[in-house]
Nucleic acid binder design. Structure first.
Length: 885
RNA sequence: GCCAAGGUGGCGAAAUUGGCAGACGCGCCAGACUUAGGAUCUGGUUCCGAAAGGAGUAAGGGUUCAAGUCCCUUCCUUGGCACCA
């Protein structure tokens, strides 16, 4: 024998063997409707993992956590007669590949391919039951073609505000024959804008709002600055309302729905126009400042206005005296990064413009200030300041000695007394109450006052109710090489989509794909490629990484289709479960929407990928390209796996666990089983090598339940395994295990499913004779969790005992029979004043009166009562009796 | 600061509708088998106590015959948002 410690069971030999067998037999291949072998009578189940970005460091232990969970359910559903779509692919465009390529001088395509090969091999070594024939890669020209096609669809769509649905731009043109080119471009769902954007010098590209965290890039943590640039934007704001409303029907974690709602940031209020006092505008009609407020009821308490320093009217209204201070202040704000402007802003800053505005309700002349606590990007970039009832205005007013007037009180003025209402407020109150000092609004509740003032403003053309959203349009262009080129060309300063027939627009080959360090994209270096025709030049930006992942779940339905992004039939079948063309769901209905039945991934995509994909999907739905208004019906987030030290895994801490090492030492089944046994899928939980050993030991016990060693140390079928009937207790354990594992898988409680199987094994290990039928039940139940071990043992049993043909993975999931679980006698607890004093065995379902009598007769109870009659007796059938003396 | 989720043995965790707290696993202790054990099997293992018994689910209070579970207050941890008018 070798020096190497003998393995408790030969996982290293059996695991690759069964992986080959599944691949050879195409066990997990699922045909589409119309293809040979498709069985229309079965229900469909589309179960999806968030596909990985194939990084250079390979798989980490977080990947197999979610993947094992979906693998278990996919196998379980298949054994329950579903057509299961369970695919895997690669989100392969993106910054890290490009940065690595720059460092090593290799083309990103080369490194990406290497990384993908490594990821695929690693995933296959864990024994996942993906249908690998459906693998997709977002960088593949056959995929890029359809990403560009969808962009083109956005480009040629507009959102009709009446129906709130996207429609072809041609219909807009038909309805507005006089529309200028500019007006048409202004309604497209993909448009070009000159706007302040998040420019990240460290990455040499602009970033979406969602990619900027605390003023730093999400990738790399480089500082991000605001600068105006001409960029492609997607009009996601047009869908803000639907993106909020249609969350309701989704079976998603509340926390994720909440994140999306918060990110979209709907707030109801009003816009109010303030006339500028003594203002002689050179441009006619520019004499109003419009503010957004959620509290129009406090309009009488507005004692000054504040504009954002970037507000376009600032220059025009600033009066001579204030010019210098205003210019200086604006310059100092412009020099601040977002981080300085928000994070360190303990003290409010701002300057007076010298101008005044007229409060429309009372004609009062109030000063106009500028301050950086007012953001140009939200609302109108201007606010009315009501210091008595807004914390920020309160702080600002106190700092600069501006007037404060209370207009909301806890009680109507008559009750509270004039004195209270007219006194200078001692603190800022932001809650609702009753209007005071507000003329015709006095004594109204906040809600009534809001309605009243809105109507008043509306009648006079001074304002209107508005809904405002925090959500900004999606900045969609990047100054990078490794992304999808836009299917756009420029002529005479105008953009145009290239014809569909020219898709895909492939990336040019470049030797030097480094960012230029300036906002000019690297594609500019490829002069031949840029030149589209004598008069036209290609768009030089590329799409962000989110493009490919915003629709990949659709491509999986029909990944090799060259004619359409997904065939009509395949999309309809996998997204709705129906082959019927009328299977389009109603977006407003409360019934399940259809779509991907279960989507599992991390929470890091709460507002990025999951919002973008919903947006694209809704455009596709509106344009009649897909059958459901939402892509993912049910979403589950797996929790983070921490290092053994309870800290987040990181190279610098040295606590990173590599799944390859775990597989080498304990096998793929142990890795899978441990990741499921650690605790609830959704929880954050630490890694434990001892825990891996624990489940490994369990698998070895399963092995020895069926196998034993002969004299030479060779494994062979154990003599204890016999074709006998199980005893009643064995049968009870068997059926209890079926029940527990089945219900636990349904509820994704994999840790308790495994403990149920451990109880089975403990019970059966203790018996000298082991009925083969019960062991087979165990192997079927165990198969989704430990597929390799269960296949091996299944095949060993099949050599000696006749069995249903095929692999375990091809068996039918067992059903439990409650008849074996019923007991005719139960042990119940007898409590005295809520404390357990005794236990008695009684017949099941005994009448209450008899249970009471038996409980009172229990020795400890009888002793304690000493002949007294108890005040009360509570009987919980078959469980407990509580005697209250 | 705001929002959300959570706090149970030495550790990871269990505990339908309020009804025996700690299933299952790790670790630890003891025993068996072994030339050997970091293998395997058997038993024990919330804490205090020799035992009888008592205490116990972050802390405090409440509802109830009965609270890990429901209600109130406080503390702590994790995640998200962060001048959003």
């Amino acid at each position: 024998m070798t020096n190497e410690r003998r393995k408790p069971y030969p996982f290293d030999e059996i695991e690759p063997r069964w992986q080959r067998a599944w691949a050879d037999r195409q066990t997990f291949r699922v045909p589409n409707p119309g293809e040979p072998g498709f069985e229309a009578s079965r229900p469909k189940y589309y179960i999806l993992d968030m596909f990985p970005y194939p990084s250079g460091s390979g798989l980490h232990v977080g990947h197999p956590e979610g993947y094992t969970a979906t693998d278990i359910i996919a196998r379980y559903k298949r054994m329950n007669g579903f057509n299961v779509l369970h695919p895997m692919g690669w989100d392969a465009f993106g910054l890290p590949a490009e940065q690595y390529a720059i460092k090593t001088g290799q083309h990103p395509r080369v490194t990406t391919e290497q990384n993908i090969n490594r990821f695929r091999e690693q995933l296959q070594r864990i024994g996942f039951n993906y249908d690998w024939s459906r693998e997709v890669n977002t960088t593949d020209p056959g995929y890029v073609k359809w990403t560009q096609w969808i962009f083109r669809l956005l480009y040629t769509s507009w959102l009709d505000p009446r129906s709130k649905q996207a429609r072809p731009i041609a219909e807009f043109v038909a309805e507005h024959p006089a529309a200028t080119r500019e007006q048409i471009d202004n309604v497209r769902l993909a448009y070009v804008a000159d706007a302040p954007v998040n420019w990240c010098p460290g990455l040499g590209t602009v970033l979406a709002n969602e990619e900027v965290i605390d003023g730093k890039s999400e990738v790399g943590g480089f500082p991000v600055e605001r600068r105006p640039m001409r960029q492609w934007m997607l009009r996601i704001t047009a869908y803000a309302e639907r993106l909020i409303d249609e969350l309701n029907g989704l079976d998603w974690p509340d926390s994720i729905k909440l994140s999306q709602r918060n990110w979209i940031g709907k707030s109801e209020g009003a816009r109010v126009k303030f006339q500028i006092s003594d203002f002689k505008s050179q441009i006619s009609g520019g004499a109003d400042i419009e503010v957004f407020t959620t509290r129009p009821d406090t309009l009488f308490g507005a004692t000054y206005l504040v504009l954002s320093p970037e507000h376009p009217l600032v220059d025009a209204i600033t009066t001579g005296d204030a010019k210098n201070t205003v210019t200086a202040y604006r310059a100092s704000v412009a020099g601040k990064s977002d981080l300085d402007r928000t994070d360190l802003a303990k003290e409010k800053t701002g300057v007076f413009t010298g101008a005044h505005a007229i409060n429309p309700v009372n004609g009062e002349r109030i000063p106009i200030w500028i301050a950086d606590y007012v953001l140009m990007g939200y609302g109108t970039g201007a606010i009315m300041a009501v210091p008595a009832h807004d914390e920020r205005d309160w702080a600002f007013a106190n700092q600069f000695g501006l007037p404060i007037r209370q207009v909301v009180a806890d009680a109507p003025a008559a009750t509270a007394g004039d004195a209270t209402c007219h006194a200078l407020p001692l603190e800022c109150t932001t809650g609702e109450g009753y209007a005071v000092n507000s003329d015709f609004l006095n004594d109204l509740t906040t809600a009534e006052a809001k309605e009243n003032i809105s109507a008043w403003l509306n009648e006079r053309g001074l304002g209107a109710k508005t809904i405002n959203y925090k959500l900004r349009d999606w900045l969609f262009s990047r100054q990078r090489y490794w992304g999808e080129p836009f299917p756009i060309v420029w002529r005479d300063g105008h953009h145009d989509a290239v014809p569909e027939s020219e898709l895909p627009v492939n990336l040019p080959e470049l030797d030097d794909f480094k960012p230029t360090g300036t906002p000019e994209p690297p594609l500019a270096k490829s002069t031949d490629w840029v030149r589209y025709s004598e008069t036209a030049r290609r768009e030089l930006n590329t799409m962000p990484q989110w493009a490919g992942s915003s629709w990949y779940y659709l491509r999986f339905c029909d990944p090799r289709n060259g004619q359409r992004f997904v065939s009509v039939e395949a999309e309809r079948y996998w997204m709705t479960g129906s082959l019927d063309p009328s299977a389009i769901r109603n977006p407003q209905s409360a019934v399940p929407h259809g779509g991907v039945d279960l989507y599992v991934g991390g929470t890091e995509h709460a507002v990025l990928h999951l919002l973008y994909a919903r947006f694209w999907h809704k455009v596709l739905f509106d344009r009649g390209c897909v059958s459901t208004p939402e892509p993912f019906q049910r979403l589950v987030n797996q929790g983070l796996i921490l290092g053994e030290d309870g800290q987040k895994m990181s190279k610098s801490r040295g606590n990173v666990v590599n799944p390859e090492d775990v597989i080498h030492e304990f096998g793929a089944d142990s890795l899978r089983l441990f990741e499921m046994f650690m605790g609830p899928l959704q929880d954050t939980k630490p890694w434990s090598t001892a825990g891996v050993q624990g489940v490994h030991r369990f698998l070895a016990r399963v092995w020895r339940l069926i196998m034993e060693e002969d004299q030479e140390g060779r494994w062979m079928l154990a003599a204890a395994v016999q074709a006998i009937e199980p005893t009643a207790p064995q049968r009870k354990v068997e059926h209890a295990t079926i029940k527990a594992v089945t219900t636990d898988i349904e509820e994704m409680r994999f840790n308790t499913a495994i403990s149920a199987m451990m109880i089975f094994v403990n019970e059966y290990t203790a018996r000298a004779a082991r009925p083969v039928a019960a062991l087979r039940t165990l192997l079927v139940l165990l198969n989704p969790f430990a597929p390799h071990l269960s296949e091996e043992l299944w095949s060993v049993l099949a050599e000696k005992f006749p069995a249903t043909p095929g692999l375990v993975a091809e068996q039918v999931w067992p059903k439990w029979d409650d008849q074996w679980l019923i007991e005719d006698e139960v042990e119940i607890v007898v409590q005295l004043a809520g404390k357990v004093r005794d236990r008695i065995r009684i017949k099941k379902d005994l009448p209450t009166a008899e249970v009471e009598a038996l409980a009172l007769a229990a020795p400890k109870i009888a002793e304690a009562l000493a002949g007294q009659t108890p005040r009360k007796i509570v009987v919980v059938p078959n469980k407990l009796v509580n005697v209250v003396p």
